[in-house]
Design a protein around this nucleic acid. Structure first.
Lengths: 336, 336
DNA sequence: TTGTATGCGTTATCAC
DNA sequence: GTGATAACGCATACAA
């Protein structure tokens, strides 16, 4: 059964699906009045035939809802989401947009790009979740600009992204700990190893290498959220020497707190701890946690502002924008 | 020129506009692919002919985007908006909806119901702003359920609404102040006089009438936001007797703080002050402000939850739901 | 030209 | 039956 090598056209899809070309166009572009069933049937046939709609921008450019921006979120009840939605909302409203908050749900039959296709926003900001190549392709096929916000991994293609100076933040944390009353160091990273985690760790190691070149750096693998008190973690805090710990987020830093409490160690007398993110609970923990503050609201605002810029400049802006993070020194570290 | 008394039908509008009935329907309902020009022309002619689309639900019910709820906001950078959007987002995501945040902009050519019509959400939650009768009619014409959240005035028609126990909150504030070391009382209300302001004042007066029937109650008119130090306010704090002040929101309570500072009066020694809303700055003011805490996040969540209930029960739910507010006693009041 | 998007008419369907 | 909407086809407007 040899397939013809010619490119599959919209007409082929339409004939196979038994609908008109116009209907097929609407089914794949998300516009107009169509039954859910018809839309899915056409989409299914287009997939099986291997139809590619990205053969260059053909026809009139798709008109998008010029007043709408979509913000795709990975979770809905954490400090990150709170700060980011506040910043995004303020920026969107200031620029005259409305803002759709969309949850990336695990159910594969409920993919967020499908919902984006029906709404046709003028831009999509993707927060922290790791979009699949297929999801990105769907959005690009609709000619909707994409901005990645604080991405977990390096983007596949050339995409605009907004983040923070993770490497520098790690470096600052390391420089601060290097000046503390400690004999050795440890870095707690999460698994899986996200890009921001790697950057923070590298910055930290660079600072220690420069300022305390002879000091040892232990490495502890933890998890980003729900950090359990692993054997590695307990081993870290039961060591006799005074250790300066850099945890790549506050959650893991507070796991160090718990481990230290169980081992009967005091912070900052026996252990100096630096976190990352400066979540609200960092300031209210006991002792208050020294942490690297990310300008989350400004980052989200900048991501929103990029949307109209991307449209104006004909999608020529593929920069990564990094806003500076700053070390906030509190009581969990004891300078020498 | 006598107009025929028969009701204007969609066909009349279509003929006058020179389009088909289907096109006219789409123009007025916001659906389908239409030129901006055509849509506005048809809408204009429908207005001049006095076409009413609310002649009862005829025809197939309008299909709405079943996964979308719209949240209309009046401002975008205050504590109320922050708490409400957080609660609304969490509830919407939990129930499987996406959430559009929409700003009620003053520009009349940029009315939010127009944008709602193009998005066709499955429900609209209106936060604190005072919607016009025309705006409400437009949304009802689309058969989209409406929930009012913390409305400023009593709703025009029979609309579902979510609020807090303002009267009881005022009563609790009054009862607390009645037990304070004060000789007379004052209530600071805002102009214009919103429904929640009236309820709070009435509850307060009731408590004083019951518990300190002989005490005098002064009345000070201020403004809800940007409370200036009016002559009335200065007069209140320069009085020689110790006075218990109930301000109908925290903003105005902090204006009392400023007035007291200027007059050289101490809180709570010379003046006991109770606010309303328990905004974040209430706890961090000096002295920490005793205030009535509203469960803003829960209120917003409840409003979101009402949307699917309204659809299921065939729009039969016209309740007003009131969630309890609670007095938080801090350092701005001195019990006897 | 050819492939695609879009404006609007047509028709079946649905609530009253 | 009648008013109205939903779903789809046709014809045209564009961009490559």
């Amino acid at each position: 059964m040899s397939e013809p090598a010619t490119t599959v056209t919209l007409k082929d899809v339409a004939e196979a699906a038994g609908v008109s070309v116009g209907t097929a166009s609407r089914a794949l572009s998300g516009r107009g009045d169509l039954t859910r069933g018809t839309r899915e049937r056409v989409a299914e046939i287009a997939r099986t035939l291997g139809y590619e709609r990205s053969s260059g921008p053909r026809g009139r450019p798709t008109t998008l809802d010029p007043r709408l921006i979509e913000f795709v979120l990975g979770s809905f009840d954490d400090a990150w989401t709170d700060a980011m939605t506040t910043g995004a909302r303020e920026a969107a409203f200031r620029l005259g947009f409305d803002l759709v908050l969309t949850l990336d749900r695990p159910d594969p039959s409920d993919d967020w790009p499908t919902r984006v296709a029906t709404r046709r926003p003028t831009g999509v900001v993707i927060g922290i979740i790791r979009p699949t190549a297929s999801q990105l392709a769907q959005i690009r096929g609709l000619r909707i600009p994409i901005v990645l916000l604080d991405p977990m991994s390096d983007p596949e293609g050339e995409l605009a992204s907004v983040g923070t100076t993770d490497w520098q933040g790690g470096y600052d944390a390391g420089a601060h700990l290097a000046g503390c009353d400690v004999e050795r160091f440890a870095v707690v990273t999460g698994v899986p190893r996200y890009r921001f985690g790697r950057a923070r760790e590298e910055g930290f190691r660079q600072a220690i290498a420069e300022l305390r070149p002879d000091a040892e750096i232990a490495h502890v693998d933890s998890r980003w959220t729900d950090s359990p008190l692993t054997a590695d973690l307990m081993k870290l805090v039961t060591d006799k020497s005074r250790v300066g710990v850099f945890a790549c987020n506050d959650e893991m830093a507070l796991a160090v707190y718990r481990a230290a409490a169980r081992a009967g160690k005091r912070i900052p007398e026996d252990l100096s701890v630096v976190g990352f993110n400066d979540e609200p609970r960092a300031a209210s923990s006991r002792p208050p946690l020294t942490s690297v503050h990310q300008p989350l609201r400004d980052m989200a605002a900048r991501a929103i502002e990029l949307v109209p810029e991307l449209r104006r400049h004909d999608d020529a802006v593929h920069d990564r924008i990094e806003l500076p993070c700053t070390l906030v020194v509190r009581g969990s570290t004891r300078p020498r």
